Computed example of a mutant assay.
Amino acid sequence: MSQKYDITMKNIFSDMTDDIMSYFLGLQYTKIDELNIEFARIERRDSDMIFKCTTDKGNVAVHIEFQSENDGKMPYRMLRYSMEIMEKHNLLPYQIVLYIGKDNVKMANSLSYDFGEQNTLDYKYRIINVGNIKYTDVVGTDYYDLYSLLPLMDQNRREKEGEKYLERCVEAIKDIPLDINKKKDITFKAEILSGIVFKREVIEKVFSEVVRMFRIEESETYKMIIEKGIEKGIEKGIEKGIEKGEKEKSIKIAKKLLEEGMDIDKIAKITELAKEEIKKLIN
Rank of each mutant, 00 (worst) to 15 (best):
N36Y: 11
T136Y: 07
M262N: 12
D18I: 08
G101C: 07
G101V: 07
F66M: 13
L79I: 10
G72L: 07
G162D: 09
S208F: 05
L257H: 03
E277N: 13
K10D: 15
D48L: 01
Y99W: 06
S14T: 11
L281V: 12
K52T: 08
I216T: 12
D19Q: 06
N104P: 04
Y125C: 06
Y76P: 00
K73L: 06
K223I: 06
K236F: 05
I180A: 09
D142K: 15
S2V: 11
N156Y: 03
N181D: 13
P93T: 05
A61E: 02
Q118G: 09
L193G: 05
R80K: 14
T55N: 12
Y76K: 13
E209K: 12
N283I: 07
I186Q: 06
V139Q: 12
F198T: 07
K4L: 06
I270H: 05
E231Q: 03
S82N: 15
Y147I: 09
T187P: 01
I128L: 07
K223T: 03
E217D: 12
E272L: 05
T55V: 03
D145L: 08
I253A: 00
N104V: 04
K164A: 10
M83F: 04
K279N: 12
I196Q: 04
G237K: 04
I133T: 13
V97H: 01
S112T: 12
G58L: 04
K57E: 15
E43M: 02
Y222G: 02
R158L: 08
D145E: 15
I7W: 08
M83S: 15
K10T: 06
